Amino acid sequence: MRRLSDLTAFAEVARAGGFRDAAIRSAYSASTLSDAVRRLEEQLGVRLLNRTTRSVTLTEAGERLLERLEPALAEVGASLDAVNAFRDRPAGRLRLNVPGGVARLVLPHILPAFSAVYPDIRIEVTVDESFVDVLAAGCDAGIRYDERLEQDMIALPIGPARQRFALGAAPAYLAAKGVPKHPNDLLDHACLEGRFTSGRKLIWELERDGEVIRLEPKGPLLAQIGGGTELLVQAAIGGMGVVALFEDWLQPHFESGALSPVLTDWWPEFSGPFLYYPGRRNVPPPLRAFVDFIKSDSRARWPGPRR
């Protein structure tokens, strides 16, 4: 059991890229994790991590160990979770990997009600804009949009069935710069840009009556999607330019008057997010409970996009 604990500590540090971040994500202190990794290295007789004052990286031996260790730890977790089937109600951890928009717009409507029904399930959410292998990331399931799902995954709609991509700007900005009448008018406006963690910029895709126009926005501010998304919104409220985001994210600011809708006839509609998880192994009881909850209770509470 001590060796298994040390292996788990090593995997936590490797995933987090450092002892301090791993300590934040786990129930252990940074010193406890460091002791566990050092003990494991001494037992194996090889260095697994390169440590400097500024970074922690995997050695080649560490990379090889982590590659084989991740699925093994996932199976150990699944085996322990299987015991929950003998409890009166499921218990354990439910680990979800989701993008920032889902964390802000979808999960707050679902998790409180789910937790009230299953108080013995601890929910751990990792916010990540990139598509990840949920098992390799140490998660049970992910939530993404359909264009980013792998074919070998089981996918279940979660949250709103349909969403829209909306544009807005501060009334003072529009009074000074003019109101765009056509998407091409945005080429003469300050557009607030978003960039994914991969480095790829968000392309604005607008549609009306079957006509699709794709624009690469240009403007005075570029922020990373996820952690910097709210900065784009607040910059737009401050009159810095036009912002494009989920309609539900901007709707409170439309209602307050802080932002005015722009080019509403061109807002594209798309399918909502999906909960996805691997179908090649037994589903852990906490995830099974969440899947059943979504199927039975959640989708009916979501209205369609506003008109």
Rank of each mutant, 00 (worst) to 15 (best):
residue 217 P to L: 12
residue 137 A to S: 14
residue 13 V to D: 03
residue 55 S to Q: 12
residue 76 V to Y: 08
residue 243 V to Y: 04
residue 107 L to C: 08
residue 270 F to L: 05
residue 65 L to R: 01
residue 33 L to M: 06
residue 61 A to Q: 11
residue 92 G to S: 05
residue 57 T to V: 12
residue 299 R to H: 04
residue 107 L to E: 03
residue 110 I to P: 00
residue 146 D to Y: 09
residue 36 A to G: 06
residue 153 M to N: 04
residue 111 L to F: 08
residue 140 D to C: 07
residue 294 I to A: 08
residue 99 P to S: 10
residue 41 E to M: 05
residue 38 R to W: 10
residue 86 F to H: 12
residue 89 R to P: 00
residue 203 I to P: 01
residue 222 L to A: 07
residue 18 G to T: 09
residue 239 G to N: 02
residue 30 A to W: 05
residue 146 D to K: 04
residue 220 P to L: 09
residue 299 R to V: 12
residue 134 V to A: 02
residue 190 A to C: 11
residue 84 N to E: 14
residue 253 H to K: 07
residue 202 L to F: 12
residue 292 D to Q: 08
residue 176 A to K: 10
residue 244 A to E: 06
residue 193 E to Q: 15
residue 77 G to A: 12
residue 261 P to Q: 01
residue 73 L to T: 07
residue 285 P to R: 04
residue 208 R to V: 10
residue 13 V to E: 05
residue 304 G to I: 08
residue 227 G to K: 02
residue 241 G to I: 09
residue 33 L to C: 05
residue 151 Q to K: 09
residue 112 P to S: 10
residue 209 D to Q: 10
residue 202 L to H: 07
residue 132 V to T: 13
residue 131 F to I: 13
residue 125 V to T: 13
residue 77 G to H: 12
residue 280 R to C: 01
residue 18 G to S: 06
residue 240 M to L: 15
residue 192 L to E: 06
residue 264 T to R: 12
residue 98 V to E: 05
residue 207 E to S: 15
residue 276 Y to V: 03
residue 178 G to Q: 04
residue 168 G to W: 02
residue 79 S to T: 14
residue 130 S to A: 15
residue 177 K to S: 12
residue 207 E to G: 03
residue 145 Y to C: 03
residue 78 A to D: 14
residue 2 R to P: 00
residue 209 D to I: 07
residue 133 D to E: 09
residue 208 R to S: 13
residue 83 V to N: 06
residue 236 A to F: 11
residue 112 P to T: 10
residue 170 A to W: 00
residue 261 P to A: 07
residue 85 A to C: 06
residue 189 H to P: 02
residue 53 T to W: 11
residue 74 A to N: 09
residue 114 F to V: 03
residue 37 V to H: 01
residue 150 E to P: 04
